[in-house]
């Protein structure tokens, strides 16, 4: 029997590849590309709800100008979100790395500790975390019980103490937020070849040197992954003030066009930040020494 048309091995390979990812592409068009296009359109149009549905009239860059000049709510929310991001992401990364190093050492009860470190991902997120925050349970009682703030006030000027204390307050949040990152770092630490440490031991390297010269360079790509994950996580969090603000504009004030414009401003800023991060990590790939071989 002769096939109606013949395709080469290569053609078949390509066709099979496309068929595997086709569902994703369809989903991308339906649930991302089209909504993204429409929201861009909304951002430049004034929308009115009429009897025949939505009526759009061109509005130019008006919404974008308004966001920064007229709207008194957006800029503070944006600044708040950005400050949180800049403060929290490095803290999360450092803490996650520290915890991963602790957990990576061989000791009795490792698995139990690992499960505990992931617990906040389940408990302290979403509404439950909101509840805990409402009740002031997101601060460790140690700081309140022993009246640390007042005692320190005798030695440290208030102007320095207050930001420091608010950072201590958010420390619990940082710790609870780093569950996923700890696990990613742990997996990364497991992938460092033991032979390198052995060689370093032979040469008499200290643990400190081994960390900076072996561990850190090898897991740099994973630091990038974790940075991106933390940034996206912090940007899409429900407690994030910009998120809440946009939702309020869209679904309480029903100002769809303006909400879309704000969404785009937010997106562009995220994108810029991620580009900066990628630029900082631009050499991370080169440390990826013959990874393919293993």
């Amino acid at each position: 029997m002769k096939k109606p048309f013949k395709i080469s091995m290569r053609g078949r390979h390509i066709l099979e590849g496309y068929s595997f990812i086709s569902i994703w592409v369809v989903g991308f068009l339906l649930f991302l590309a089209v909504p993204l296009g429409r929201s861009l359109y909304f951002a430049f149009h004034r929308l009115e709800i009429t009897a025949n549905g939505l009526k759009a009239s061109p509005n130019g860059f008006q919404f974008f100008r308004d966001a920064f000049t007229v709207d008194v709510g957006f800029t503070p929310a944006l600044i708040h979100t950005m400050t949180n991001l800049v403060l929290h992401v490095p803290l999360i990364l450092v803490f996650a790395m520290f915890s991963a190093l602790l957990l990576n050492r061989p000791f009795v009860g490792r698995l139990a500790f690992r499960s505990i470190f992931f617990l906040p991902v389940i408990i302290a997120s979403g509404t439950v975390l909101q509840k805990l925050l409402d009740q002031g349970a997101a601060t460790l009682p140690i700081f309140l019980q022993y009246d640390v703030a007042n005692k320190l006030n005798d030695y440290v000027p208030t102007a320095v103490l207050l930001p420091l204390l608010s950072m201590m307050d958010s420390l619990t949040l940082v710790i609870w937020d780093s569950g996923v990152q700890i696990l990613i770092f742990l997996a990364a630490l497991q992938s460092v070849p033991v032979s390198l440490y052995e060689a370093a031991d032979m040469d008499g390297a200290t643990p400190w040197e081994k960390f900076w010269k072996i561990t850190l360079p090898i897991i740099t790509p994973m630091i990038l992954v974790n940075t991106l994950f933390s940034i996206v996580n912090s940007f899409t969090e429900i407690r994030n003030s910009v998120m809440q603000y946009i939702q309020m504009i869209a679904f309480e004030k029903n100002n769809y066009g303006y909400a879309s414009a704000l969404g785009w401003i937010y997106f562009v800023i995220i994108f810029l930040i991620i580009l900066i991060v990628l630029y900082i990590f631009r050499n991370a790939g080169s440390n990826n020494y013959n990874r393919e071989e293993r």
Binding site: F28, L32, P35, S39, Q247, A250, Y266
Partner: peptide, 21 residues
Amino acid sequence: GLVLFTFLVPPQTIVVPLYMF
């Protein structure tokens, strides 16, 4: 690249059209 891009788009940006859809 589009997969990565999808990961980065905040839900807020597309929430209005998606809701309408």
